[in-house]
């Protein structure tokens, strides 16, 4: 496990990181290193330079913000899982973060790195889609924001340009009247999601005000099952309604498949896990 040679720079600020990225072709941002370093050790990636952003403190932490809750890109999964603010106001994210890897991975891995890497089997992308999160980025031309639903563009590819740094993720607080659930069917080897289902259900008395369902692991980019949510809005969101909404509206094209789980099977899992996540979210909203 010996990576190829690379240059190493430690950025003191976001501006410096952006400048370094701009100056060095083939450079990569280094955050927690838990996705990047393994592939470098296998020499599947051989960046010419690493720009270490680990010491830019302003990128760490969770705070309230006008659009809800802002989570700095360098915030670790462990911090997110333990955050009282998130547990109270956006438990979907803290629950999902608690499902990532093992304690070492959660202590080092960051939310920014997780979504910048855009591994289809990661846990956070679907959660951010289901929540309607927004991604903040800084580049040579200034800051910009994209919706999570536009961020993921292909397998391991995102909106992020080569000289941009992901700075924060904004998530809305989940309404008092809503419940959420993240259920994960784990790969027995990697522990990543073969199928992860994230659901948010907002209730208005006995009927469903809105529902949002998204999946990890099933397709190259996380799948937001918008039509399923739309079909449930206004319904009584009974078990039967959920099953019917999924049967009629869950359309997954080009599922991923590997030696562990075929595409056909993943689609089946999405139906089962999608249903169960919606049921659990509904029950949590009622309780």
């Amino acid at each position: 496990m010996f990576p190829a040679n690379f240059e190493y720079f430690r950025a003191a600020s976001v501006e410096e990181a952006v400048a370094l990225l701009h100056r060095h072709k083939d450079a990569k941002v280094l955050a927690g290193g838990h996705s990047l370093l393994p592939i470098m050790k296998l020499r599947l990636a051989e960046p010419a330079a690493l720009i270490d952003i680990g010491h830019i403190h302003i990128l760490k932490g969770i705070s309230h913000h006008r659009n809800g809750i802002r989570i700095g890109a360098l915030t670790t999964h462990a911090t997110i899982a333990r955050s009282e603010v998130l547990q109270r106001e956006c438990s979907l994210l803290s629950d999902a973060a608690a499902h990532i890897g093992d304690p070492q991975v959660r202590n080092k891995g960051t939310i920014g790195g997780n979504i910048a890497h855009a591994d289809p089997a990661s846990d956070l992308p679907a959660v951010l889609l289901a929540l309607g999160a927004r991604i903040q980025m800084a580049g040579p031309a200034g800051d910009r924001t994209v919706a999570a639903s536009d961020f993921f563009t292909d397998l391991l590819e995102t909106e992020l340009r080569e000289d941009e740094v992901l700075t924060a993720v904004d998530v809305p607080a989940i309404a008092e009247s809503a419940g959420a659930s993240y259920l994960k069917f784990e790969h027995p080897a990697s522990g990543y999601a073969i199928c992860g289902a994230a659901a948010v259900v907002d209730m208005d008395g006995g009927s469903c005000r809105s529902a949002s369902l998204a999946f990890n692991g099933v397709t190259a980019i996380p799948h937001h099952a918008v039509a399923v949510g739309d079909a449930l809005a206004g319904s009584d969101i009974s078990d039967e309604a959920i099953a019917a909404a999924i049967e009629a509206n869950l359309r997954i094209e080009e599922p991923l498949g590997d030696i562990q789980a075929s595409g056909e099977y993943r689609v089946e899992l999405a139906k089962v896990y999608g249903r169960r996540a919606l049921q659990q979210a509904r029950d949590r909203a009622r309780s």
């Binding site: 790969h187 027995p188 080897a189 990697s190 030696i259 562990q260």
Partner: peptide, 10 residues
Amino acid sequence: LSGTLLDYAV
């Protein structure tokens, strides 16, 4: 195809 611990489940 199952040469790493990502694919081979111990």
